[in-house]
């Protein structure tokens, strides 16, 4: 038996919005410690990994490890039927070929139930080792989204260059070129606007904006995004999954990490 309850349905909606255009089908691995998912896009250039901690749920029970393969587009459709403030419970019985989704409205007298068929999906699991990255940039997620969107007006790829003075995002195309430079800054009053750069050595790598723009669908999950880069390894773009509850307190309940291989010739 598997049962997981989140107090705010909007978190699950945001997670699905962040991944379902990149991957249509994927398997959730459910263990006593939480739920996780790893899937590559069809061209095997990018990968998304989601991790939800069991203790981030208001109720979490996993009697034995389960793999729940499903169509994420369909899951997303069903989740659109849940209110943002609904409590959402995912239930799966051992050996069953479907999962149940239960939405409880805040008014406490309205309960909706939906079922989704499970799928047997071929496992395509990549072993990603713990890596020490040369450059780590932590910046406002909305700023990163804006930069990727704006530079995609200029070209298909962005070159991320890190030096002691800061980080440059630049693109070149038929109409010309453009760049956005950020330097480290910190604000006590608005920590969500901070830019933090940690660098061992200067670095410059180029990535397809098509994928980065897909990654920024996770922007509503968290105010800050972390970019991790090293020569000859894929870029990692990480968003914490933050649940804001009624008292406006924020709990980190997991993360989404996107991996993107660099452009050829880099």
């Amino acid at each position: 038996m598997f049962e997981a309850k989140l107090d705010r349905g909007i978190v699950l909606k945001k997670i699905l919005d962040a991944i379902n255009q990149l991957v249509n089908e994927a398997s959730w691995e459910c263990t006593s410690s939480g739920m996780s998912l790893q899937a590559m896009d069809t061209s095997h250039v990018s990968l998304v990994a989601v991790n939800l901690n069991g203790d981030g749920f208001s109720k979490f029970r996993c009697d034995r490890n389960m793999v729940l393969g499903m169509n994420l587009v369909n899951l997303s459709k069903i989740l659109k039927c849940a209110g943002n403030d609904d409590k959402v419970t995912i239930k799966a019985a051992d050996g069953d070929d479907k999962i149940k989704l239960i939405f409880e409205a805040p008014n406490e007298y309205e309960v909706s139930q939906y079922e989704i068929k499970l799928m047997n999906l071929d496992a395509e699991y990549l072993g990603i080792p713990e890596t020490s990255y040369n450059v780590t940039v932590k910046m406002p997620a909305a700023k990163f989204q804006r930069i990727c969107r704006d530079l995609n007006q200029i070209g298909d790829a962005v070159t991320i260059s890190c030096t002691k003075s800061g980080v440059d995002f630049s693109a070149t195309g038929d109409l010309g070129n453009g760049s956005v430079s950020l330097s480290q800054n910190s604000s006590f009053d608005k920590p969500e606007d901070n830019v933090t750069i940690s660098m061992q050595e200067p670095l410059s790598q180029t990535f397809a904006l098509k994928y980065l723009n897909q990654f920024t669908k996770a922007t509503p999950l968290c105010s800050q995004v972390t970019l991790s880069l090293s020569p000859d390894v894929p870029l990692v773009v990480e968003y914490k999954i933050i649940e804001e509850n009624e008292e406006d307190s924020k709990n980190e309940i997991g993360h989404i990490r996107y991996y993107l291989a660099p452009k050829i010739d880099d």
Binding site: S43, V45, Y125, G127, K263
Partner: peptide
Amino acid sequence: EIEQQCLPNYYDDS
């Protein structure tokens, strides 16, 4: 369309 490396070139698939 720019040419991209594939992720399995970097990580073990199991």
